[in-house]
Amino acid sequence: MSWHMPTTVDEVLRLKASKPDATVVAGGTFLGLVIRQGLLDSDEWISLQNVDELRAFGTAGDLSAGAMVTHRRIETEPAVRRDWPGVAEAFGVVASPRVRNVATIGGVLADADYASDPPAMLVASRAVAEVASVRGMRRVPIEELIVGHYETELDDDEIITRVLVPRPTGSAAYRKLRTRSREDRPAVSVAAVRETGGVRVVVGAVSDRPRHYPDICAEWRPGDEQSTREVAAAYADRIPCLDDGRGSAEYRRQVVSVEVRRALMQVSR
């Protein structure tokens, strides 16, 4: 059993290439959970803790967050709160401060849990992940990165190194609807981001991955109640909602139309 603590991205990539079965450890919150449940044990672990490059953080142009940047940092960083308020909000409502202190942006994306908050907002914000392997680096929009519940299109030898979020040109809203305790994961979440000439509405937590329908969004006329309702209804119609302890598919469908409408009203202003 070995625990590797590389200090550079190159080193990580070489390790990952030579040991495709090794498990990459970021904050370890999701991994801790599956290990405890006996669902995972691994012989090789690659910890990203000591890779300083992966903690790089910038807000000069795009928001640029290394994969090891924590939720807490994104949530509390003044520049993010000012210029990417929707993103700060979505990271700030994840779990508890204790989890956010260690959970990373790379981890939440690679994890691809359907009931997570940040992915919907990142998709709505046109965020892009930089994905690297010994074979090179590529940029993958988050919209394409997450393909299903716990499924990404990362290859075995790849890791996420950085996430880039363009500077918003309009307002944003993130709505997290909880049906049980105030500390629950979302039953329905809606991210809406205005941009020149339109809006991007993404619905999370109701199906296997965040759902975004550009053709429906194109029908929206800001401030027009009728079209707002129609867009909301069309989202509710199109998304294949799932059942879980937080709500039935039927309830989710009903609430998607309510919450999409409310999110659109929030960004109309």
Binding site: T179, R180, S181, R182, E183, D184, G245
Partner: peptide, 26 residues
């Protein structure tokens, strides 16, 4: 919100992520 949910006699929420208890905010 508290409810133990059984499907055919199998408990489906035997943990605190799926069985919520009240928090300070609640």
């Amino acid at each position: 919100f508290e409810e133990l949910t059984y499907v055919d006699g199998q408990l489906v929420n035997p943990n605190l992520s799926e069985y919520n208890i009240a928090s300070a905010l609640d």
